[in-house]
Design a protein around this nucleic acid. Structure first.
Lengths: 210, 210
DNA sequence: TGTATTTAGTAACAATAGTTACACTACTAT
DNA sequence: ATAGTAGTGTAACTATTGTTACTAAATACA
């Protein structure tokens, strides 16, 4: 674990802190599609992402979802921090987008390190900043783009975090992430295909114009 | 200034910190409609709200706006923190919604207090949490509500921060805040009036169903 | 092998939101 | 007083998105 940790976070944290993380952190490997955090959960530990990607979702009253953004390696989940500190329930759902390796840090440590390690404090504040920026980007996407543009952006983002120009997903799943209906997605995907931006296959979409 | 400060923040900060704020903070009274922060600005000081309300806006490529939320007394602008710490440009615009009294804290102090005062650290983290929550609420509103519901929510929020059931605003201004057109707003307002939820006057709207 | 289920394509229609155009009223300034 | 401007009401039309319904192919599985 220490090796992976040093590779991803060595340039950020001092040795002493890395040692502490190594001591109290719990290393986990999760396969794609694993639910990390559920809405309403009280969070007892925060994840440091070593490898892979996590999808962050919001839910409406009817239980339908909406993707907010993806988190990648080197990131942590600022929502988690937010909940720990406010001692409140999670406002979001987190699901692994790919197979993932991460280190779970107990809340108590997270808080005590804030006073002890300047680099940790910087990391936490930076994480807040990054997540804030991503939330604003999510708002831009939802408020300013039309559905076809949102769809294409979604496909590109998904291709990015999966490190592949072919993404494995059904129209129905996309509709769920974008909070619309399957028929709408099928229609727009077909239009994108005609425009030459993507190629459609069963359960797979190839992004041409990456 | 110390009196106002103690009233609003006395229960949060220890005396020593209050004294420091009193020493380095700059007290300001701003009238309604004053631009506090512009998109792209580098922030040199962060505001502690004593009285009044501030409107936080996002802008699209075409220069059209979208309201994110209102900030009220006892709050600070976590976006500001975010920018200071990341040493990056402001992502948002802040305009006083009402006449406002506030204290400006220089960035350097803000950062050094993080290590020095536990209560300040708590306050900053709590602010991040609050703002994160408001951003999520903004996303819910934009993504899950239809325009007529968004409009009514906007009117209620505005009535709230103005402490009045009659709000002074034109249809065009509302359209700007909600990122739609004046005609759409006029149409929906008329429908709300027919439903008995509001009463329309020139430059004024009375909210019945508060 | 045959049946059920999942996935995708498409048509037809409804609902919502955005656009253009114009009329009318209230206020502003000279 | 009059011209100009800002604010509002409405109609007619377009564009976008959402819904319902049906078809067919691919896949799962018993």
């Amino acid at each position: 674990m220490l090796k992976a940790l040093t590779e991803q976070y060595g340039y950020l944290f001092e040795d002493e802190l890395l040692q502490e993380i190594n001591k109290v952190g719990i290393y986990k490997e999760l396969s794609e599609g694993t639910k990390l955090i559920e809405i309403g959960d009280y969070i007892k530990s925060m994840p440091l992402l070593i490898e892979g990607a996590i999808k962050i979702l919001r839910e409406d009253d009817k239980g339908d979802e909406l993707i907010l953004y993806f988190i990648e390696q080197g990131d942590t989940c600022a929502m988690t921090l937010s909940c720990c500190i406010g001692n409140s329930k999670s406002e979001i759902r987190a699901i692994t987008e790919t197979d993932t390796k991460l280190i779970m840090i107990p809340v108590e440590k997270m808080e005590s390190w804030l006073g002890k390690y300047k680099t940790w404090q910087q990391f936490i504040l930076q994480s807040y900043h990054d997540r804030m920026t991503e939330l604003l980007e999510a708002i831009d996407t939802i408020a300013f783009l039309k559905m076809d543009e949102r769809l294409f952006k979604y496909l590109k983002d998904k291709a990015m975090v999966n490190h592949s120009d072919v993404i494995h997903v059904t129209h129905k799943q996309i509709a769920g992430d974008l909070h619309t209906s399957r028929v709408v997605i099928s229609r727009l995907l077909k239009t994108l295909e005609i425009k030459g931006k993507i190629e459609l296959y069963r359960n797979n979409i190839k992004i041409i114009d990456l």
